[in-house]
Amino acid sequence: MRLEYFQLIDRVTDLNLADRTIRTEATVPQDSTVFEGHFPGYPLMPGVLLVETMAQSSGWLVVAVNKFERMPFLAAVKDAKFRTFVLPGQVLQVTASVEHDGSGYAITNAKITSAGKPICDATLTLRVMPFPNGEIRQHMCDQAARLGVPSVETAHG
C-alpha cells in the first residue's frame, strides 16, 4: 500500500474474466502519517481505507471486465462489516466478484482476509462510465501494468 498516493492495492494475484472474480494483495505499511492520528500510540488501519481497498479491487475487476474501455466509480457501500482490527505490517488478501453487471453500473461483493481470517466485507455499487479523457485511461493502464493486472487477452476465461 502507498497510502500517500491512495494506492491501496500492491498486486493483482488472479483475474478470472469468465467467473468475473479477482484476487489482490496488499501489505499495510509499518509507518504512515495516518497512524499518527489513528490512533496515537495505538495504530489501526482505518475502516474507510479498508472499504477503499475493496473498492479498488472491485474497480480493477470491473475495468478489466469492460476491457479497459470504461471506468468504474464508487457509488454506494452496503452492508460493510469490520470484523477485526488491522495493524501496521499486516498482509491482506482481497477478493471481489461481480454480482451484477448492469447498464452503466455494477454490483460487487468484496471481502478482505488476513492469514485466512475474515477482516471485513461489503457489497459495493460502482457507476461504470466512459473514461473522462485519454490521459486518465492511460494512467489506469499504466497502474494496471504496475499491479500486474493481466491483459484482457491473458486473463482467465
Binding site: 457509488a75 454506494a76 451484477h100 453487471d101 448492469g102 447498464s103 452503466g104 453500473y105 455499487t125 457507476r127
Partner: peptide, 17 residues
C-alpha cells in the same frame, strides 16, 4: 440504480439505462 438492480434480478433482464 438500486431499483434497476432489483428489477434486473426480478425479471431476469438488463434495463438499458
Amino acid at each position: 440504480l438500486d431499483i434497476a438492480f432489483a428489477i434486473d434480478k426480478a425479471f431476469g433482464i438488463k434495463l438499458p439505462l
